[in-house]
Every structure is written in C-alpha cells, then in structure tokens.
Amino acid sequence: MSRLGPMFEDLKEKRAALIAYETGFFPDLETSESVGLAMLDAGADVLEIGIPFSDPVMDGPVIQASSHAALEAGATPAGVLGMVSRLRRKTDKPLLAMTYYNLVYRYGLERFAADATAAGLDALVVPDLPAEEMDPLREACIPAGLDTVAFVSPTTEPSRIEEASAAASGFLYCVALLGPTGERDSVSNELPGFLERVREHSDLPLAVGLGISSARQCAEVGRLADGVIVGSALVRMLAEGRDPESLVAEMASALGGQT
C-alpha cells in the first residue's frame, strides 16, 4: 500500500508536504543514495527519484545535464529500483520515481509495477503520460499498490482535470507554470486561480512543482497547496558540489515542518 495517502491525511490541516527531487545515480550511485537520505533527514517528507532517460523533454537544462551524467554513471531503471530498496530499509517516508514512459514500457508495465513495489516504491510520476494514455500503466500499478500521479497545468480544461483526477492516485502534480523544469524567480500569479480551479474538480491532494527554488517561494506555495515539489534548485546545488540538504532544511522550516 502506498504511503502517500496516509501522509497527506496526516499533514492535512497542518502544513504542506515537502517533496524533494534528485536524479538517481547523479553524480554517482553512492552519492545519490546518501544525498537522498540526507534530504529526508533534513525535513523532506517525500523523496522523488528520477530514473534518467536519454530524451527528457519535460526537463530544463539542470535536470537534463544531471540525467546525462547519471546515464554516464551507469544508471538503469533496475539500478534505481535497487537504490530505492536500499533507501527503503532506512526510511518509512514515501518514495516516488519520476521517469519517462519508454523506460517503463520497455521494462514491461506489470513487471515494473511488481519490482517497484517490491523495492518499496510508493508512486510513479511519468510526465509524458497524459491522462488518456494512462490506463495501461494504471491497470498494472493498481494490483501492485503503486500510485500513479497525473499532471494538470494552467492550460488544462476543467473536464480534463476530472479525467486526470480519475486516472491518478496519490496526488495531482500541478504544473505551476508553462515550461520545462527549472528555477524561476517568482511564483506565477496565475497559481491561486489555477489551484482553485483544480480543487473544484478533484478531491486528490495537490502538489505544486516547477520553478520553485527558494524557501520563500516554498512558503508562498505551501499556503495554497498540499505539497511542494522542489527539483532543479536541489540538483543544481549537488552539481555545484554543495549539500542540497541545507536548502531542504530551510524549505522544511519555511513550510512549518521540523528541521
């Protein structure tokens, strides 16, 4: 059973969850494993691990570069699932995998769902899989107890929000602004209206991602959403040889969590 539902239930009325991203095998397997754990220790509620793909269309330059380096470092889907199973022995917090559909398709949907659950993964985030293409993956994931996260964006029509909500479990990934992943200076002023629209058509927890890079932005988004997803800002710190857990701690505290 996925740990996401109970976690969002537990945090409801308290504060937004902090979802910290890292690219598996970046800069190498060992470091990414210890950094993942350190970010959880520093106050991240959920760890999202990228399984690198050769053609990451939804990602901006920072995560693209990390994916490329991770592939050079030997990253494979099975390798990242191995990493998940080792992390699972050290944490009870939800673990997500973010990857592109071809890797899961090639692995075999049922086999991937089974192996991912056995490794202790809670949910799968596939940015190139819109709601109408999600059925085969969802059908493979449901019996395994794996959540499938779906995306909604400011361009998503209300009828599609309902479709995405029906296709998804765990939470809805709300794309905060139009564009690939990457840091932005400010939170889009469309966000409050966008989230209001999504809430009208979905009962799932809403996590907001894309462009969130500072504790101040985290706090701002945390007031509106159930979860805040931070990716590029953390990956960039790691790429620059700095410890991303310091930023995670700042963000967790800005959201009102423990540090």
């Binding site: 940015p127 190139d128 899989l129 819109p130 361009t155 794309v175």
Partner: peptide, 12 residues
C-alpha cells in the same frame, strides 16, 4: 500513435 506528451501540450 497516441499523444504521449506533457499535460501542458494537450490543450494545444
């Protein structure tokens, strides 16, 4: 075939 693209492109 299909439409395996990020959600923001679906409306387009």
């Amino acid at each position: 075939g299909g439409r395996f693209v990020p959600e923001p492109l679906i409306a387009a």
